[in-house]
């Protein structure tokens, strides 16, 4: 479609859409700003107990302090590192196991009930055991994060692998394809959308694993800050940590979305 030669009606249509998008964006910002202002005002006039809720300007001052002495980046760095390693590990291992299950129907059936059980089990319940076994440092936290995302990865990817059209596999067989070629030429590429969905889910799950792990053992990290803030009743530390967590998760999600767009050309 060319940019030129668009009718008046179409031009109106486009500008009305643009206007609407803009209104939505402005409203979104407004909701955020009004929410924060109400919070601040309520705290200022003592409508709410700031000991329990803290308030935006206090959180901001704390944030500036933590940034200045560099502590904040230390904590963020550690948590992000643990999450990225856990996320990559969980996704990669889950992906490999799923390929194995696709390859061997026998083992897929053998492991099926175990996977169902593991999937319904809250993985965070395993965290204390994992930390005792693996060690109370980064490694324990990372393995906890892996344990949270790996089962979902296996199930999602396996589900996607076996949903490839029978006739498509038949077609490849008429070409004389080997099982490995079927995997590489059709099963894996057709599972890219499922993989991207899994990546999105795994970001959140890996954070759950890391924060739980940090609650239990760590001496640093965002989870540590939250627990510490809670223990000394400094709610501003807790609030700040939660905000930071939200921002980083969204950033990671955006990165996956960018990867997704790269694959979306067809």
């Amino acid at each position: 479609m060319s940019k030129k030669n668009i009718s008046k009606a179409h031009e109106n249509y486009l500008s009305s859409i643009k206007k609407r998008n803009k209104t939505i964006f402005i409203t979104q910002i407004a909701v955020f700003v009004i929410g924060l202002s109400l919070w601040e005002v309520a705290a200022h006039f003592k409508w709410i107990d700031t000991f329990l809720t803290s308030y935006p300007s206090q959180i901001w001052r704390l944030f500036v302090n933590y940034t200045k002495n560099g502590n904040l980046f230390h904590h963020i760095g550690i948590s992000v590192f643990e999450t990225v390693v856990g996320f990559t590990g969980g996704t990669l291992l889950g992906f490999i196991v799923a390929i194995g299950l696709w390859w061997s129907k026998f083992w897929a059936r053998v492991f099926d009930p175990y996977l169902v059980m593991l999937n319904s089990l809250p993985k965070t319940a395993l965290a204390p055991i994992i930390i005792i076994w693996v060690g109370a440092g980064y490694s324990g936290i990372i393995v906890t994060a892996i344990s949270v995302s790996i089962v979902v990865t296996i199930m999602n990817m396996y589900e996607s692998f076996i949903s490839v059209d029978e006739d498509l596999i038949k077609l490849l067989n008429t070409f004389g394809a080997t099982k490995f070629q079927i995997l590489r030429k059709i099963v894996l590429p057709s599972s890219v959308p499922a993989l991207i969905n899994t990546l999105k889910i795994n970001i959140g799950l890996s954070w759950v694993g890391v924060i739980v792990g940090e609650f239990l053992v760590s001496k640093a990290g965002i989870g540590y800050l939250i627990v510490y803030g809670g223990q000394v009743f400094k709610l501003d530390i807790v609030m700040m940590s939660v905000f930071i967590l939200a921002i980083i998760s969204v950033l990671m999600y955006r990165i996956v979305a960018i990867v997704e767009n790269k694959f979306n050309r067809w």
């Binding site: 038949k170 070409f175 394809a177």
Partner: peptide
Amino acid sequence: RNIGYMFQKDQLLEWRNILQNVVLGLEIQ
């Protein structure tokens, strides 16, 4: 095996362009 098979659905691979789809069999062989 040197038999052509066509199905109800065309079974083109959505992530390959037309030329790449046409040469799929050759590529596999």
